[in-house]
Write a protein that binds this DNA or RNA. Structure first.
Lengths: 235, 235
DNA sequence: AAGTGGTCTAGACCACCGT
DNA sequence: CGGTGGTCTAGACCACTTC
């Protein structure tokens, strides 16, 4: 399908990831890029803007477009994140299901989902395993009125892949609240940590493009293995 | 000076913060806003885009522009952050200076700053105090070739205010690496915590709009008092 | 079908950087 | 002063939602 500026951004992103341009070097000028992709200036700038937001490049008025130096290795980009599998760039992600059931929204959940009391929700508790090592524990709820069906096979793999590619839903935006939390004894065991250890905790509220909340989850990450990176642009 | 789309975004942001529109309600249509501010569609959309990025609103094709529900209270927005004073929305922020000296960049610092070995750097160690309670400990370096002068008065208050309003520098972007870290005995004392407690830690690399790194810092936050919020838009 | 947001163009002019 | 990015316009047409 033909949304030009997104396609161009994808091409440039791939070029950058493949190492076509090195840190600190210049991209072609906007004018050259306009000619190369045969688009207008605004369209070209929309494509560039996406790459700026993702933290790949920065623009300097009167000078050019530069590759932005960024530490990427070993960190999870918190603003791009849609599920672990994609972010960690390894297929070696699986889940051990600790709980899988349907519950009804209590007052707290109804508030978080902005839904009615007693709305049916899927509750999924998973130990996330990366490269055969325990990585995080995830407690998630899905609004059953939106995600009408889930099974063990789906949640053993990638729920997000199922939602976007199976159900063809469009994920719009999310709020992530990050803090540092104590682990319960059970969590310590599952993550193979020591008693009294803390975890990086992320509470994630995820919306479809139409503004409906379909997922509220909390993940606790092994604090020895996990760093988040966040890329900020000031305007 | 007259950058229309930014001015319009500021006006709308203020309206939203003042509660002119309530959560879930609609903003006027783009067409109405174009007429109201007497600008073209692209300009109007640029203004709206800024508010989308900041997490105030979301757009639904064919339907309208809606106020985005967001938990703001008590959380620090990690992607907007430029210094504590502004973010916490209280003037009651001050600093106790633990160290203030000029050092030369060793190998590690030179790498982080992308500067030469032995480049002179200001080193500032501060206990940040909010509402008379210890809030965080900040270890920061500033490239002395860019920030040529600092004194105790400046660093007791807001360094960022001095850089943007005093020196008239434009801050462009930043990388923030977030993790969970142990505290030293000294840090535990300063933050009035218990031995063995962990802290939320943020390592911040800050660039001017021209791509120069002027500040590399690490802040350790009292994990009982601090939550970060990050607003993500998927595209 | 009408309303509303999304994409794209072609061109004008401004602002900043470096020579 | 030439090169390069930044802002803005006016208008066309597409895509999705709502009734």
């Amino acid at each position: 399908m033909g949304i030009k500026y997104k396609e161009i951004a994808d091409i440039l992103e791939e070029d950058i990831l493949k190492g076509k341009y090195i840190e600190g070097s210049k991209l072609p000028t906007i004018e050259e890029l306009m000619k190369k992709f045969d688009v207008s200036k605004n369209t070209m700038r929309s494509a560039i803007e996406l790459l700026v937001i993702k933290g790949y490049i920065y623009q300097v008025q009167g000078s050019g477009i530069f590759i932005r130096p960024t530490v990427r290795e070993g960190s999870i980009n918190i603003t791009n994140m849609r599920g672990l599998s994609k972010e960690l760039n390894t297929p070696d992600v699986r889940s051990e299901i600790l709980k899988f059931e349907v519950v009804k929204a209590n007052k707290e959940l109804a508030k978080k989902f902005r839904c009615n009391l007693d709305t049916e929700l899927y509750y999924v508790e998973r130990l996330r395993i990366v490269k055969e090592e325990p990585f995080s524990i995830e407690y998630s709820y899905f609004n059953k009125e939106i995600i009408t069906y889930l099974n063990r096979e789906i949640i053993e793999n990638s729920i997000y892949e199922y939602i976007t590619e199976g159900l063809k839903y469009n994920i719009g935006f999310a709020d992530k609240i990050i803090c540092c939390e104590k682990l319960t004894k059970k969590e310590v065991e599952l993550l193979e940590l020591k008693n009294g250890d803390m975890a990086l905790s992320v509470e994630n509220t995820v919306y479809l493009t139409n503004g409906l909340i379909f997922d509220v989850s909390k993940s606790k990450y092994n604090s020895n293995k996990t760093k988040f990176i966040s890329v900020a642009n000031y305007r």
